[in-house]
């Protein structure tokens, strides 16, 4: 029971790191970036190639995945996404689906359609008993890394100058511009960090979530649930939503294996009936 809670917790933390970039780009730029998962997949593949084929240590692979995906994010933002910020949501959705299809095919072409596994260090494969809870070392690592990221994000947002600029830009882009904030730069940095985090999440999560060319599509619904249930007003909303989703999914798959996959959809539907704006969402004013 507690073991499941622990696993669900780790899973939820991972989902948060994967999806928080999407929440911020949505709140900041009103951009429905369905292709967000492509950056996560890219991170997974970068890490896999480095660790498995070039002998790079796993713990070096993670930060490199972050950096590479952040760089990819900057390139994609400048070259592609900047054209669709002001477009309709339909355009954004179509564009992102197109992007996903292309990325899928490209990855399939170079790496094949099969599942990939990253060679993680042996000591991370252990499970040990702690106060009667069976704790997986790898999941502990996930909780540690993701928890650190969540705390740092919260600190950056609430305590730093960049954070206050970011929040000003989320609240009202025009006012922020009027205050002399370089909104485009804020957009670009945010997009980069969001993509980087997704890449890190993809690398870290390959062990649990799997890694193959269909990754962006398979997890799209999870990201969407995180941001719709969690809202985009803060990062605590998506964080709590991720945890809820992670625990519900793991518990569902464990206790009612026949219908496990439906648990999260049921949760999603109940939340929507109860609060159409999401559990922690703000009421849309614009």
């Amino acid at each position: 029971m507690l073991t499941n809670l622990f696993d669900g917790f780790a899973y939820g933390m991972l989902l948060f790191v994967l999806a928080c970039g999407l929440a911020v780009t949505l709140g900041l730029m009103n951009l429905v970036n369905l292709a967000h998962g492509a950056f996560a997949m890219a991170g997974g593949y970068v890490c896999m190639i480095l660790v498995n084929r070039h002998g790079v240590p796993f713990f070096a692979g993670l930060p490199i995945a972050f950096i590479v995906c952040a760089a990819l994010g900057v390139v994609a933002e400048r070259l592609l996404y900047t054209h669709i910020y002001r477009r309709s949501h339909l355009d954004q959705v179509l564009f992102c689906i197109g992007l996903i299809f292309m990325v899928d095919a490209v990855v399939d072409y170079f790496q094949g359609p099969q599942q990939q596994f990253i060679n993680i260090p042996d000591f991370l494969k252990d499970r040990f008993e702690f106060l009667g809870v069976s704790v997986g070392a790898y999941r502990l690592l996930i909780i540690g890394v993701c928890g650190l990221i969540a705390v740092s994000l919260q600190l950056v947002l609430t305590r730093t100058r960049f954070g206050s600029r970011l929040r000003a830009a989320v609240d009202d882009r025009r006012v922020a511009r009027g205050m002399g904030i370089n909104v485009d730069l804020v957009f670009m940095l945010t997009f980069a960090v969001g993509s980087g985090l997704a890449g890190l999440g993809g690398a870290l999560g390959a062990e649990i979530l799997g890694l193959d060319p269909t990754f962006p599509l398979k997890y799209m619904i999870y990201f969407l649930i995180v941001v719709t249930v969690g809202g985009t007003a803060s990062i605590t909303g998506p964080f709590l939503a991720s945890l809820l989703l992670g625990v519900a999914d793991v518990a569902g798959k464990y206790y009612i294996p026949d219908f496990g996959a439906f648990v999260i959809y049921t949760v999603m539907i109940l939340v929507l009936i109860w609060r159409p704006q999401g559990l922690f969402g703000r009421v849309a004013t614009r």
Binding site: L80, H83, I84, R87, D91, L94, F95, I97, G98, L99, I100, F101, M102, V103, D104, A105, V106, D108, Y109
Partner: peptide, 20 residues
């Protein structure tokens, strides 16, 4: 046969950027 998805995706992206 295997990668036609890529071209479909490209068509979508070009359609959106070029105007639907």
């Amino acid at each position: 046969p295997q990668y036609w998805e890529f071209w479909i995706g490209l068509v979508l992206v070009v359609l959106v950027l070029g105007g639907r």
